[in-house]
Design a protein around this nucleic acid. Structure first.
Lengths: 187, 187
DNA sequence: CGAAGAAGAGAACGGTCGTTCTCTTGTTGT
DNA sequence: ACAACAAGAGAACGACCGTTCTCTTCTTCG
């Protein structure tokens, strides 16, 4: 087994477990069992639980950014690229494992007591805002459009998570259409 | 001291502490000290920490619903009533103690392991959606407007919490204006 | 005044968690 | 074959948390 193989499995397993049950509810022993490694190996790869949490956040960020960008690139026009954000959300919400945005959740759980987690969540959302801004700029939209669409996307995530239904994605998409067209027409 | 006086102080103190540090990070002893009651009194008023959490959620729900409705009633027209939602958010975001929506936070922290908390968060958001729907109906808007505005409000809350700035309220308000006018014109 | 009960303070208990230690097993290099 | 090291399994440790128990103090009522 490769050295980073165990590492990857640990982080992937932690990601699943933390997403399903919350971070604080998952102990190192449960993670150890689920990942199929020894405690020794676990602490050989990571010095502490906190470092595992940060690795999970990095993994989530990469997975989100790559998945979103892949979905966006399938859209032919700049306008449809902006809307593709919400198609990506719709697909995500329909997955059985969806339990809300992992960054919002980890921020809610640990943001108040862990500055690193709070900071990482902030950076992640900042990068999403910047991504939306770049798409909006590509569509020739005024600067205020991107934050509006980002807020819609955030709201769709929490609404879908708490309501337990993916409806919010299509509702947000329709709202986004209105906002995009309004922004492009008054330009 | 009245019987319910201690109860109220316990719940109010728990609300503050849970909001500031998260629920799981605040132990019964810290709550006891901050509220200035004995452990005996604490367990005389509430059988368990879980019941305190539920009482805090009820308190948050009432406070939110009353504060929002009071703000909305100050608005003269149905259209401005819908926008008043976002003025209420703006005022909230500017408070020093703002750390995001308490229901989103408690759902993220405990929703996966406490069905009661998850259910209460769902009910709270449902009631907010119904409230927005009643305002939208008063403005003569089509049915799809209310969910759109509710999603904007949710997104503003998480965005403001994580970014640590109240900007999202005004951005969401401007988006709401566009959505409202579009919905009212195509009717 | 004295006995009885309420109430506060905090010790104690059982359980869990993050982390480390120990002991056993297996493997490798000569 | 044997010494030496790597690694797995899980016991152990210290800290903390929710909850209960005990002891002391204060009030109150006959």
């Amino acid at each position: 087994m490769d050295i980073s193989d165990a590492r990857n499995r640990i982080v992937a397993t932690a990601d699943e477990l933390y997403n399903a049950k919350g971070i604080q509810s998952v102990g190192m022993d449960e993670l150890r069992t689920a990942a199929g490694v020894s405690l020794k190996k676990l602490y050989q790869e990571f010095p502490s639980k906190k470092s595992i949490v940060m690795a999970v956040l990095e993994r989530r960020h990469q997975s989100w950014a790559e998945g979103l960008d892949a979905r966006v690139r399938r859209a032919p026009t700049p306008r449809e690229q902006l809307l593709a954000i919400f198609d990506y959300l719709a697909e995500w919400f329909c997955q059985e494992t969806f339990r809300g945005c992992g960054f919002i959740n980890s921020f809610a759980e640990l943001g108040a007591i862990s500055p690193e987690v709070a900071e990482y969540a902030r950076k992640h959302k900042e990068s999403f805002q910047a991504y939306v801004a770049s798409l909006a700029a590509g569509a020739g939209a005024p600067g205020y459009l991107a934050p509006q669409l980002a807020i819609l996307a955030e709201g769709a995530q929490t609404t879908a998570a708490i309501a337990g239904s993916p409806n919010a994605a299509t509702q947000a998409r329709q709202a986004a259409e209105v906002l995009i067209d309004a922004a492009l027409n008054t330009k």
